[in-house]
Amino acid sequence: MARSSRKQEILQAALACFTEHGVDATTIEMIRDRSGASIGSLYHHFGNRERIIAALYLEGIGEYAALLEAGLVDTLQPEACVKLFVTCYIDWVVANPDWARFILHNRGRVEAGEWGERLREHNRDHGKRIGAVLRRHREAGAFRPMPGDCFVSVVIGPAHDMARNWLAGRSSTALSDCRELLAEIAWDSVRSVPKGKQG
């Protein structure tokens, strides 16, 4: 959360409270006390606690999306393009472990809430932007044929699973130490293999 504003300060305070006390145990008063904002300011910016949760979630996935989209330029080669999905994800998680943990545990809550449509709209828009870059490589035959939603799962799935284990303290290996390996695995999983080299 690079920007410094009252709204951002409230979100940072909320994340600290959620990390320390858990989402369900955190009250609007706790967020008020941690942020130094008035109740009026909290309600002005967000309306209620559930909207703070949703805003924090959307802000987090928006940061990763912006990081990825900034690197996905049209001139990027297919291998670098695929690897960027993994390296951006790992870099963001390592830099923001509490935020990443919050996102991993609250997707269903946000999807089912009043901001669920905002989340779906964000995902659709992000998907269109990255899809436009990937389409050129797919049409050029750089990737093995597979459905688009399968492609994303194959590319990010292993990194996502490793991140979950690392964030939960179940991994003795640092997530950042697996960055290049997971990126290489992602590329090997989706790259088109010449017919003469299959098998």
Rank of each mutant, 00 (worst) to 15 (best):
K128H: 08
I10K: 03
A168T: 02
E79R: 15
W187M: 07
T27A: 00
R101D: 12
H160M: 15
P97F: 01
H45K: 12
R32L: 12
R164E: 02
V133T: 09
I90A: 10
G131I: 13
M30K: 09
R49K: 09
L181K: 06
E121K: 13
G116W: 01
I90F: 00
G116K: 02
R34Q: 14
W166L: 00
D177I: 11
A14K: 08
S189C: 10
G169D: 03
G196I: 09
G116H: 01
G108Q: 14
L67D: 15
A66D: 04
N106H: 07
C178L: 02
H160F: 14
L15I: 02
A16K: 05
K83S: 12
A2C: 05
A80S: 14
V23R: 08
R191H: 03
Q198R: 08
K195Y: 01
A14G: 06
K128W: 07
I28W: 01
A186P: 06
R135T: 11
E111Q: 06
R136S: 09
R191P: 06
E79P: 15
V154S: 04
D188V: 02
F85H: 05
E139K: 10
L119P: 03
K128R: 03
P145A: 06
E184P: 02
D98R: 11
P78H: 11
T87L: 01
G62C: 02
V82N: 10
W92V: 05
A186G: 08
R107I: 13
R164G: 02
G40F: 10
A142W: 11
R129A: 04
N165H: 04
G71P: 03
S35T: 03
E50L: 10
D24H: 08
E79D: 12
F151A: 10
N123W: 12
I39K: 15
F102A: 03
A163T: 04
E69D: 07
Y89M: 06
R164I: 07
R138C: 12
E117K: 11
G131C: 02
W92F: 08
R109Q: 07
D24Y: 07
E69K: 12
L11T: 06
R144F: 12
R136D: 10
W92C: 06
R129Y: 02
I28A: 04
A174R: 08
M162V: 09
D177K: 07
D74S: 14
G131Q: 10
R51T: 09
V133C: 12
R179H: 01
G36A: 06
I61G: 06
S189W: 06
W166R: 00
D24C: 11
V193F: 04
G71K: 14
L11F: 02
S38T: 09
S38Y: 06
L84R: 09
R107A: 10
I103C: 14
A132G: 10
D125A: 14
P145Q: 12
E50K: 00
C88D: 03
T87R: 03
G40S: 13
R107K: 10
G157T: 15
K197L: 14
L68F: 00
T75K: 15
C88Q: 11
V93G: 00
